[in-house]
Amino acid sequence: MRREPPQTLGDYAPLLFPAAMLTIFFVVPFGTMIAVSFFQRQQGGFYTPAFVFDNYARFLSAFFGGVLGFSLLLAITVAICCVVLALPFTYMLTRMARKVQVVWLVALLSILSLSEVIIGFAWSTLFSRTAGITNILVALGIMSEAKALTPSFGAVLTGMVYQAFPYTVLVLFPALVRLDPTLTEAARTLGASPLKAFFTVVVPALRNTITATLIMVFIFALGSYLLPQLLGRPQHWTLSVLITDQAIYQSNMPFAAAMAVFLVLVTLGLVALTVIAGRKGEAA
């Protein structure tokens, strides 16, 4: 069968549905947000249509720069932790018996069904002084006194990695299943230990998949706003938390929209940089 370029308007019809979906669920809301970000804030909950840069100007400060920097750093750290943990895990999972795989995947899917609130409360209990895991360490004689592990950066990171881990595995799984198992066997016959074979063959062969997964987890983590509040101190709050504050509690939609637009732009920029860097690496 030959593929012909579309000739008439009718030939473009199959594109209409996805185009409509994209418009309704992405272009319109995002366009609205951009528009609102330029509106004039009326102190006390209202805003009037206008074209002012006040909202962006307010954002461009060392304070918000710091929060933005922390949010990006946190999301990158979560993405790296998730991939570093999930890659070997998923690799081993694909080499297990089908039955074992199903059990694991069902377990991971059930974590996905947990809401951010439940995950946050579960971890804040696990990390608490009165009911947390340090009590087990005390009982085992490893620690002398139970202590609270939350709120802390480690707690935020743990919670977010826990939440994003199933996504990471599910994204990596198909690529790892498709990976020719004889590649690692070949590496072993050529003198690489299983560990070396993993790093010299599996990881580089999956470079594109890994990059894509990093980007996905990064974006996922960037949107998190409950876990940093439940498990962190205020200095661990992400920009998403402040956006929520402005939108819900301060009724300052224009400023919230400006922050969100800025966040989206920075994110897109980072993703573009990653993709370009990946291309260059491939060409070299």
């Binding site: 307010r58 304070f63 205020p234 200095q235 709050w237 402040l242 504050d245 301060q250 300052n252």
Partner: peptide, 9 residues
């Protein structure tokens, strides 16, 4: 709000 957020964050 700005002062407060800067204070606690």
């Amino acid at each position: 709000n700005q002062k407060w957020t800067e204070l606690i964050v």
